[in-house]
């Protein structure tokens, strides 16, 4: 006789059957400009989803809404079942965000960034080894030597790498990376791809926005193409590989 089993949850879904990241009819406006226009999006646990599209397509704004730093005008954004607008504090505990701009406090050192994040994320209780994890990540991203230097003197690539470290070091259920490869050297790109895969393999959802289609194809399971604040296409990332994929992508960008 076998024990009664729990109701089956579809792969990549939360226990309540919802996707890990769920965006419905999202609208974001900045003054007269509608940056995101009735956008729908979802991504499951253990999935890497690439957000691609031209400048001003709404990729960064969508990630900012999910990170809880830009409020939506209408619509809903959920991470791990938490409505970001209704409970931003809980949502921020569930996400790790690498902004598209430098994203670092210029007068603080990388280690001080980690201390601040660890304190506010309450990692002393939930992840006592955060110091070890922080040191490992800084070493993996070749930032260990500058861990106690202020970030104002960092190059663009160093800043990007540290932003990825800060987003990922608490192993968030939802990792939001906005242009993480921008200006980063090949070793930094490798480290970023590696950490995305690590987190995906442990069940995190990764949303990555990038203009580098080859990297999106290499790292993502699926890709969503945005234009004018709307989703104009979704496909397995593999479909955007090579010349044929690029042609298809261009067609989606130009409509």
């Amino acid at each position: 006789m076998t024990a009664p089993s729990a109701p089956a949850v579809p792969a990549g879904r939360e226990p309540d059957g919802r996707p890990r990241v769920e965006v419905r009819d999202l609208v974001v406006e900045f003054g007269q400009v509608r940056a995101v226009d009735s956008l729908d999006l979802e991504a499951g646990a253990g999935q890497v989803l690439a957000l691609v599209g031209g400048n001003g397509a709404g990729k960064s704004t969508t990630l900012r809404v999910l990170a809880g730093v830009v409020p939506p005008r209408t619509g809903r954004a959920r991470v791990a079942g938490v409505d970001v607008a209704a409970d931003p504090l809980a949502a921020k505990h569930l996400t790790g965000y690498c902004p598209d701009v430098a994203g670092l406090v210029p007068g603080a050192t990388p280690w001080e960034h980690l201390v601040l994040a660890a304190r506010l994320r309450r990692l002393d209780g939930s992840m006592p080894s955060w110091r070890e994890r922080g040191e490992q990540l800084l070493a993996r991203f070749e930032l260990a030597d500058v861990a106690h230097r202020v970030t104002a003197g960092f190059s663009h690539g160093m800043s990007r790498r540290l932003s990825v470290v800060l987003a990922a070091f608490h192993r968030p259920p939802v990792l939001l990376l906005d242009e993480p490869f921008d200006g980063v050297d090949p070793l930094g790109v490798d480290a970023t791809v590696e950490i995305m895969r690590d987190l995906r393999d442990t069940g995190s959802t990764v949303l990555v926005s990038t203009h580098l289609l080859d990297l999106a194809v290499a790292v993502a399971d699926d890709a969503v193409v945005l234009r004018g604040g709307r989703v104009v296409g979704r496909c397995p990332a593999e479909d955007l590989r090579g010349a044929a994929g690029l042609r298809r992508y261009r067609e989606m960008l130009t409509g």
Partner: peptide
């Protein structure tokens, strides 16, 4: 302005 370009990241941290 003390936070400079890190202000958005600071706002993404779970704090009141």
């Amino acid at each position: 302005a003390l936070d400079g370009s890190g202000a958005v990241w600071r706002d993404s941290l779970p704090q009141r």
